[in-house]
Amino acid sequence: MKKIPQQKELKDLLGPSKFSGDGYLGTDPRIPESIIEEDRHIIEQSGFTKEQLTESLKDALKKAVDALGDPVDILPGVTAVHYESRGKIPSPYRGDGLFQKGEVVIFDSKSGKKIIVTPLGINLIEKHNFFQGRGSRYRIEPEDIIVIFNLQK
């Protein structure tokens, strides 16, 4: 199928750049619109809302950042560690502004699942429903958020 220019543009925007070495799509063969649509569908099926998922991420990010690099227990068996970096990264979506670099690694020892949360990553989910492509270091599977944070309906 021939790609329409808009799709090409978004794919270029989310590729490797001077700010994100590996970009936002990882090794995912899907176009960004499909990634967004499929994740939206997964969340709908789960019975949770995107807002519920991002709230958990934001809360964990804040707790870890406040701990200044000390591991913090988010829930029994769930630890979050902030790896700080000075400097800011612009969103690949022009106009969304700059986000603090650094990352919070969240590990759930019960399920063995690990996610890497960044301020930019949360913004991409909140504003563009974009959880990033599979294979990206910063991709977060929506189901993983539900499992790690033990979200209940």
């Binding site: 700010f19 070495g21 590996d22 790896y83 970096s85 670099k101 650094g102 990352e103 270091r137």
Partner: peptide, 10 residues
Amino acid sequence: RRVPDGICTT
């Protein structure tokens, strides 16, 4: 300080 996967620090 190394930033995991950071462009310049790598």
